[in-house]
Design a binder for these strands. Structure first.
Lengths: 351, 351
DNA sequence: TTGTATGCGTTATCAC
DNA sequence: GTGATAACGCATACAA
């Protein structure tokens, strides 16, 4: 049983000091080489006699030495080769794909990703950012788009690179990437009009969300711009979250007068699924609809749901690349990248 | 413009040395206090005169100082207060929920989570583990359940705490948490038999996956144990991945002889969706089925899909708690926690 | 080819 | 109360 430089026994992990790893000093002692020589071997530097290197390697293997990257980076003054990602939650398919895309880019560049969920709590988001910067991440991807989180922007130290997803930064100096939310709902409205609908409604979601408000803007502007659409449609807006009751209330109010609503645009996945569920329990209601955000089962539901699809993968990729450009030092003006949406026509548009 | 101790100007981030943060030495200089006094203030240690503390605080605010947690942890010899999570991918709903649950527990305990996806590549998984341990994470959650990843187990240094999700460790000394996969498919078979089916088939998935093999085991044992079931059912097994063609081939072979298959068990979400899609394009085929793993739209598809639901949230929570117990030093024998599955009866069982 | 001494940003010891 | 000084694990001038 070897005794380590820090006084612990190699085979017995100490309880509170997390775990005692062998250090380069231990390797040096075990191999009879000096600290510097060990360092050379570990970092693959030239100028070590093969025999010596061999001895050191053996000691490394025997002790199970692994370099402490934290200490290495501290001494080098180099970056931590890590980024932090704040997302709203993990389980939404959009955020999950986003995180996957970001991590892929990060990994390709040799970076590690720290991740945390804001879960609708601005304070939690702020704590995450603080924890990330305290660990000196090289950059931040902020994908927590609720307006409440905008205080977050001030928590990000000046000079810390950050890219915002689905919402621009309140401070204008940060890059952002988002879907073409307005264009998406505009396309949805156009599609419904093409199908013969002239009286529409908007089934919203969280009104504090920046994306949801952009989608609402798109709906409003498309409705206003088209003289064929009943102007009442501009006011037929029900923000969420929705369940059977809220949808029933909106529906009965929108169909009680003359020129009743015949088609809906839903603002996100949740709203779409709430509507589908509502229609299941009210088979007598016939309505055309287009949902924002695609989902795996959209084509399996009957009628298959026509959607405005976001390219979460592309959004994540672009956001990460933008961040790494910043990290590399590209000092250009803040960019606001808008990723196109795509209307996937299935059957739910006609009623 | 203040000049920092490391020679960079506060307002101009240096290009390659990632970013120059003010250090305690800078704060000390700016406030006229000593390094140790600054440290005391930063850490809330007693024995500082209020006036002095005030002066230091002001300097901290002015410089935008934030303690370098990496350096702090190095000096303290304390843990890094971080865990690493290796998952198969981000976008699968199961892994996404898992990651969310783990991060929630970690955050509650003041830990940060590093995450990376193995994406079917054993080498990538190994590199992730190496990167995590090089940063001295306090523990690992391994949720990469393909059998190919089992080499991974040897990459985890002895003494590094790890909890395996959905697969036990090859080295027996690590905790694991998984669904009751065998019990799940047994319940599925029982359900189908209750509905009157006596000739079954199994639509599998990746045969290298430990979970898929357990589900297959459950199917086989349930079929063998029940004399009411046609023994041919034990061999009616088609491993995946599946598309229309593979399912068509299996189906025609399983229904060509006498006592044709009338019901199927699908091994995971992907297989279930492939079957649903297949049945869409072959409306003449009528078959009962139960899918492993619930999905949001399962109740919206017609017929609504009966599933064996896994409790991903509970699995993640238990795995994380097990890990933190280990980190806290609870030195008990390795535990293998099995989380029950739940049959959610909808309509797809009867044909 | 190899080793010694110093410092990264922080905390701990101990003296003033 | 306060402040020199050493040390955490590692890399780097520079000397041998």
């Amino acid at each position: 049983m070897t005794t380590l430089s820090n006084g612990a026994a190699a085979s017995e992990p100490a309880p509170e000091r997390s775990r005692q790893w062998p250090t380069m000093v231990d390797v040096a002692r075990a191999s009879g080489a000096s600290l510097k020589t060990v360092s050379r071997v570990v970092n693959g530097e030239p100028g070590v006699r093969p025999v010596t290197a061999e001895r050191v390697q053996r000691a490394i293997a025997e002790l199970g030495f692994q370099r402490n990257d934290g200490a290495s980076m501290l001494r080098r003054g180099s970056s931590t080769a890590s980024i932090g990602m704040v997302l709203e939650d993990f389980s939404g398919p959009f955020y999950a794909m986003l995180a996957g895309a970001v991590e892929r880019v990060a990994r390709d560049r040799g970076y590690l990703m720290l991740t945390g969920a804001a879960e609708n709590d601005p304070e939690r988001a702020a704590r995450l950012v603080a924890a990330f910067t305290a660990r000196r991440v090289d950059g931040l991807i902020v994908a927590a788009s609720r307006a409440d989180h905008s205080d977050l922007d001030d928590c990000i130290p000046a000079g810390t690179r950050a890219v915002f997803v689905d919402r621009p930064s309140r401070r204008g100096d940060a890059d952002s990437v988002s879907s073409d939310n307005e264009g998406g709902t505009r396309a949805a409205v156009r599609h419904l009009v093409d199908l013969g609908h002239t009286s529409l409604g908007f089934l919203g979601a969280d009104e504090h969300s920046w994306t949801i408000r952009r989608r609402l803007d798109g709906y409003r502007s498309a409705v206003r711009a088209d003289p064929a659409i009943d102007p009442q449609s501009v006011e037929r807006i029900a923000m969420g979250p929705h369940d059977d009751d809220t949808i029933a209330a909106a529906w009965s109010s929108w169909t009680s007068g003359d020129n009743p609503v015949t088609a809906l645009v839903t603002a996100n996945n949740r709203a779409t699924l709430a509507l589908v569920r509502f229609l299941r329990s009210h088979p007598e209601i016939r309505v055309g609809y287009v949902g924002f955000d695609d989902f795996e089962a959209a084509e399996l539901i009957q009628p298959a749901v026509t959607v405005i699809a976001q390219d979460a993968d592309e959004i994540g990729r672009r956001a990460a690349e933008l961040l790494f450009d910043r990290i590399a030092g590209t000092a250009a003006a803040a960019q606001h990248v808008v990723i196109p949406t795509r209307l996937i026509q299935r059957d739910s548009g006609r009623r």
